[in-house]
Each structure stands twice: as structure tokens, then as C-alpha cells.
Design a protein around this nucleic acid. Structure first.
Length: 333
DNA sequence: AATGAAGGCAACCGCAGAAGG
DNA sequence: GCCTTCTGCGGTTGCCTTCAT
């Protein structure tokens, strides 16, 4: 054990590789194979450490490297595998021919991770974030809605302001008001839940517990029944910081909501009890950003109906069922 | 057109495990 | 069993490019 001393040697070049260095390395390996990486630089006439040569070869010069953007299928594979094994980039790379662990890692950090965060998902656990700050943008938007509703209520009390109120509601009729009222009720529940959590969290902890979320859900009179993984059918989450294999029901407050949620979307949300948490996302979430790709992913997930990304612990299906015979999977389960 | 910010990616660093003496 | 060397991996950094102002 112990750290390799090769990079401690002085006088070795670092930084970007020149085309000449690439050519030397390429020709040497094609002729002799890489053999010992430690001795390779000297034999190949390179003023680099073996590590640097190995990295350059595996990440760039290798002939089977695939270039270009990741396909939707590759994205799905990464998401699926990451939801199971976490940041095991080299393991994930073995299932993506032509892709290097470094490339996958970069792609994850620059694209997929951000996208999950935008959707309100914890990129490590692939489950909805339930902490207050994750929901803050939605809460702010809904608070704005509340102001609008207050204005509408004032207008109703004052007939002379009715016209102005109708403008506020932008042509909405009684149904629209009812919908807005339902949204407001939900907002109040969320705010109550968040407030309770902050009050009870004490120093450090800001997470809204599933209990709080459920409380908000029931307070909002959501008809959704609590969906959970049947006992004993835990979803494996060996990622660092991952949840234990417990259950996380599809709760209303798990789902990001923005102020422009349409009436039918709200209805879907309220009726989402029969579906798992991610189905709620896929069917009714307004885009928080460019989520078109994610929707594709969701659709793909729905087709396979087995990713914890799709259903979290709520999903009745599990990874072992998805790749039942894959030794790669069973190694990690 | 100039400049700063953000994004993307290649490469480095350091740790840990495997292998061999 | 211990030590040394080598390799592989994951996290992080820094540079370059693109975008926004």
C-alpha cells in the first residue's frame, strides 16, 4: 500500500499534452503495449510520469473511445446505475462502451446532477428533496399567488373592485377561484409544515421529515393514500449519504410546484395517490428549467418502471428485477 | 467590442487496494 | 505477516470556451 512516488519526481512535465507527446505515447503503446506504466514514459521518450501517461491513454488516446454527446439511452443508464451504486464511475463506465469513467463523471457533475437538483431531487439519493430550502422557490411563487387571492377576496367584498379582481385572476371564473383556493390551501399547509420543521429542527437539521410532509398532505385534504414499498422490499441505496432502505411515500410536498400550475395539473397532483412519486413529476410538474430531456427520461423510466429514480422507495419494482441476471448488479446488492 | 461570469472538460492529486518479494 | 511498489479510482482543480451584460 502507499502512494506512488512517481509523480513526486522533479522535472516531469505536467499540464496539457502536446500532439507530439500524444503521438509518442500512441506509437509506443501500439507497438509495445503499455506494460508497466511506471517505466513507460522513459521507454517512450516522454518526460511525464506513468500516471499521467495512463490517464492520457485511458481517457483520450485509447482507440475505442467514443466521442460526442451522450445519448438518451446512455443518460438513462448512468442515472439508473448511479441510483444503485453511487459514484462508482469506473463500474458505470463498464456498462457504457467507449465512455471513460472520467467522461461519465464530468457529464454527471455538469449535467445530470444539476438537472436532478433543478427537479428537486437529491442527486445522491435520487429521491425528492424534502428540505425546506429545496422547496423555497416554489413557496415563494405560491406566496405570490396567495397575495393575488387576497386581492381577489377583497374585490369580492367590494363590488366596485370586482373588475380589477377579475383582471388579477386573468379571466378566471368561479372554477378558477376554487382552484386557486385549493392551491392556497396547499401553500398554507406547506408553510405550516416548513415552519414546524424549522422550529423543531434545532441546530443543524433543516430537513422536513416525511412525517411533516405527510401532515401537510393530509392537512391539504389530499385524497392520496400513502404509497410505500411493501415491507421487506427495500430499494438498495449504497451511495454515500444515501437513505437507508426505508420508505418514502409519494407525498404532495415532495413535488415541486410553481405558481403557474394549471388547473388540471393541480388535479393530477391531488389525485396522484395512485401513482408513485415520480409519476407525479412526470405527469404534472411544470418545468423549472429545461426539463425536456428529463421528461424523456421519465417516460423511459415509466416504460421500464423500475428505477428508484423513477419511483424512489415508492416504486413497487426494484433493481434486481430490472437486471436480474446481471452479475454486475448482484455484486452490489 | 470589451469584460466578467458560467459552463465544460482535461488533467492532477492523493488515497486505497492488489500484487509481489 | 509485513513492507514496498504499482495500479486504479474518485474528488478536485484550473484552464479554455461560450455566453451574457
Amino acid at each position: 500500500m502507499g502512494r506512488s512516488p512517481c509523480c513526486d519526481e522533479r522535472g516531469l512535465k505536467k499540464g496539457p499534452w502536446t500532439p507530439e507527446e500524444d503521438e509518442k505515447l500512441l506509437q509506443y503503446i501500439q507497438k509495445n503495449g503499455h506494460g508497466s506504466w511506471r517505466t513507460l514514459p522513459r521507454l517512450a521518450g516522454l518526460n511525464r510520469c506513468g500516471k499521467s501517461c495512463r490517464l492520457r491513454w485511458t481517457n483520450y488516446l485509447r482507440p475505442d473511445i467514443k466521442r460526442g454527446k451522450f445519448s438518451t439511452e446512455e443518460e438513462q443508464t448512468i442515472l439508473h446505475l448511479h441510483s444503485i451504486i453511487g459514484n462508482k464511475w469506473s463500474a458505470i463506465a463498464t456498462h457504457l462502451p467507449g465512455r471513460t469513467d472520467n467522461e461519465i463523471k464530468n457529464f454527471w457533475n455538469t449535467h445530470l446532477k444539476k438537472r436532478l437538483i433543478q427537479m428537486g431531487y437529491d442527486p445522491m439519493t435520487h429521491r425528492p428533496r424534502t428540505d425546506f430550502f429545496a422547496a423555497l422557490p416554489q413557496l415563494i411563487a405560491l406566496a405570490s399567488l396567495r397575495e393575488q387571492l387576497a386581492a381577489a377576496a377583497a374585490a369580492a367584498a367590494d363590488p366596485t373592485a370586482a373588475a380589477a379582481a377579475s383582471q388579477v385572476l386573468q379571466g378566471g371564473g368561479a372554477d378558477h377561484v376554487a382552484i386557486q383556493a385549493a392551491k392556497l390551501q396547499y401553500l398554507q399547509c406547506l408553510l405550516q409544515s416548513a415552519g414546524d420543521t424549522i422550529a423543531s429542527a434545532g441546530a443543524g437539521a433543516i430537513g422536513v421529515s416525511a412525517h411533516d410532509a405527510d401532515a401537510a398532505l393530509s392537512a391539504a385534504d389530499c385524497s392520496a393514500s400513502q404509497q410505500g414499498t411493501p415491507s421487506g422490499s427495500a430499494v438498495p441505496t449504497p451511495t454515500s449519504g444515501g437513505h437507508p432502505s426505508g420508505q418514502m411515500p409519494c407525498t404532495f410536498s415532495d413535488v415541486p410546484v410553481s405558481s403557474d400550475v394549471e388547473a388540471n395539473q393541480l388535479g393530477l397532483l391531488l389525485d396522484c395517490g395512485a401513482a408513485d412519486g415520480f409519476a407525479c413529476h412526470g405527469n404534472s410538474l411544470p418545468p423549472l428549467a429545461d426539463l425536456s430531456d428529463v421528461v424523456n427520461l421519465v417516460d423511459g423510466c415509466s416504460a421500464t418502471a423500475s428505477s428508484s429514480f423513477c419511483g424512489g422507495a415508492s416504486s413497487p419494482l426494484h433493481w434486481p428485477e430490472f437486471f436480474p441476471d446481471d452479475p454486475f448488479i448482484t455484486d452490489f446488492l
